[in-house]
Amino acid sequence: MFMTPECVAPTGCTLGEGPLWSPSEGFLWWVDIKRAKLHRYNPRTGNTRRYDLPIRASTLALFDGNILMAGEREIGIYDPATEAYERLRTLDAEPISNRTNDGGIAPDGSFWFGTMDDAQKVAQGNYYRYTSDGKLEPLRLPSVMITNTFQFSPDGSVFYTCDSVEQEVLSFQHEIGTGKVTDRKVLANTFELSGYPDGSAVDSEGCLWTCLWDASRIVRLTPDGEIDRTITLAAPRPTSLTFGDEDLKTLFITTARAGMSFPQLDSRPLSGSLFAVRVDVPGLPPREFGKARE
């Protein structure tokens, strides 16, 4: 099945990332990492709003009416109503050249996220787990160049992540509560698709929708790693996605224009925009930091 999404917000982000659906507000939030901006889209009106951030945030999560975010080498809370930011923790052990990248909320309510070399030259990206009691601990996973995808199966027993440079979508067995991950497997290799796996989202059937950077597409992977659906985009660099709207059947997709030449941008002018497409299988309700899902 092939689907074509429409551009709903031509924001021209350099590196759009971290889409987050807020059910209580009915808003879609996302960031432009390189420009240190937070964007908001209201699907009821089509209106957008942009906020200046004190850090280059890369991933977002719901937290007690505010937004938990990781950016640069720290974790903090942002209140869009007051535009106030509060730093919670710093990543003191991280190399100065590293920054945070993708992240997500685990079934137990902890915040998982990764780091990467901002220059993309050294494989020194690490994985972390941050709990509601302020505990920050590294996850025992190999260092990679670019950490992407922090998703869990509906029952929480499987953790999905990506080694983007190696073009591999990975799965691990996950122990809820302890955060222990074991039994590394390659769910899918994206080399033949000419794309690099980036951000992902899991639907209610347990399938993983994954963005393929430089391939202008998103693929839906079954738990066995088979591709059963494909979305083609008017932008070559999709970065991440999430489910939204009341029925969780709208797939919102962020994109980037970073690294594209002027001729490429002339031919793909919607690069960096927010896209949306209706799907027939709903996503999972977004998890909130500090709240375990029964």
Rank of each mutant, 00 (worst) to 15 (best):
T222I: 03
D224T: 10
D224K: 14
P238R: 05
T242E: 10
I253C: 08
F152Q: 02
S204N: 12
D155K: 10
T222D: 14
G177F: 10
Q173D: 15
P236H: 02
T190I: 00
D224A: 15
A256T: 14
L251D: 08
T161P: 07
H174Q: 09
D247N: 13
G156I: 02
G225N: 05
A188P: 07
A215N: 02
M260Q: 15
F150N: 07
D203A: 07
T190Q: 01
I231Y: 01
L248A: 10
R237L: 08
T254G: 07
P197S: 05
L241M: 13
D183I: 06
W209F: 13
I231K: 03
T232F: 12
G225V: 05
D183F: 05
V202L: 03
V202D: 04
V202G: 04
P238C: 07
T239E: 09
A201Y: 04
G225H: 06
T222M: 05
D163W: 06
T178N: 06
S240M: 09
E226I: 04
G177P: 13
T255W: 02
D228M: 00
A201V: 15
F150Q: 03
V219L: 03
S240Y: 07
T255F: 06
V169A: 05
P236W: 00
C207Q: 02
T250L: 08
F159P: 11
T250A: 11
L233N: 10
D214F: 11
F191Q: 15
G199W: 08
I218V: 14
E168G: 07
H174C: 11
D247H: 03
C162V: 14
T250V: 12
P238W: 03
V219K: 03
M260A: 11
D247S: 09
T182P: 08
D155R: 10
L241D: 05
G156E: 01
